[in-house]
């Protein structure tokens, strides 16, 4: 175990901030003890969902010829997802059909990530139990929906590449089949690990200040820099999650392309 003379322990301090709990620390208020059936990350998820519902049902104005204000902001994202992510990977017909799903995924992940950047809120996406269901939706679309839409033949056409001599197929087909699971797992781990690692790095830098006092003040500049980088990563990870989901689903739906 650690044998330090200093009473402050950096490891437990970081873990306490990053891990899920049933307590919510707010400034100038007593600690909010959450009930047994919901944890802090659960509260964040519900909060994010409420924000999205209010944004898209309350503030989003349909049928504006020239979108203004919040409608303009949201519409830029929606159009970006439709034109840059879904239609290139899923084709014109499926792409338009799937745009609402990918928009939901994108805004949900983005909302959860951004909530984590606000001080005193928690990042729900840094919990692997949150990212697994998100990745599992992609897995469901990759397997069950492909079977339903394309049939067993279409499913095997996605797994078995055409124009390959049969001895190599013995090697490739199990790999492709395993690949479906590997893709899901990496999708899950990437979002989880990125959000967790960003927070741990920032907390490590802030912990230096507690450990070394005034001498570690330059670490504060680094922490601010990492916070700014984190805001970039928040958008990038939401984008990449949706992009890779579209890519994987597109590979199963249209194996010829």
């Amino acid at each position: 175990m650690y044998q330090t003379t200093h009473p402050f322990q950096l490891g437990p301090y970081i873990l306490h901030h990053v891990l899920d709990s049933h307590e919510w620390h707010l400034p100038f208020l007593p600690v909010i003890h959450l009930p047994e059936f919901i944890s802090l990350h659960g509260v964040m998820i519900i909060f994010c969902a409420l924000i999205l519902v209010v944004l898209f049902c309350g503030f989003y104005r349909h049928g504006q010829r020239v979108p203004t204000g919040i409608t303009n902001l949201l519409e830029a994202f929606v159009q970006f997802i439709r034109d840059e992510i879904t239609i290139p990977f899923l084709g014109q017909e499926d792409g338009v059909q799937f745009t609402p799903f990918f928009c939901t995924l994108f805004f949900f992940i983005l909302g959860l990530n951004l909530l984590g950047q606000i001080p005193l809120f928690a990042t729900a996406t840094s919990n692997i139990n949150v990212t697994f269901p998100l990745a599992f939706i992609t897995f469901y679309l990759m397997t069950v929906m492909t079977l339903q839409k394309r049939g067993l033949k279409g499913f095997f056409r996605a797994i078995v590449p055409s124009g390959v001599p049969w001895p190599i197929l013995i090697l490739i087909v199990p790999l492709e089949f395993l690949g479906i699971f590997i893709k899901t797992v990496t999708l899950m781990l990437r979002l989880f690990a990125n959000m967790l690692a960003g927070h741990i790095v920032i907390l490590c830098l802030l912990g230096l200040i507690i450990l070394f006092g005034l001498w570690a003040l330059p670490a504060l500049v680094l922490a601010i820099f990492f916070s700014l980088l984190e805001i970039l990563i928040v958008f990038l990870q939401a984008y990449i999650f949706v992009l890779l989901s579209a890519l994987f689903i597109g590979q199963m739906y249209h194996p010829d392309h």
Binding site: T186, L189, R190, A193, N194, L236, Y239, I240, L243, L244, L247
Partner: peptide, 10 residues
């Protein structure tokens, strides 16, 4: 580029 970066960074 972003796809490749995501795979490596992951």
């Amino acid at each position: 580029m972003f796809i490749g970066m995501a795979l490596v960074e992951g």
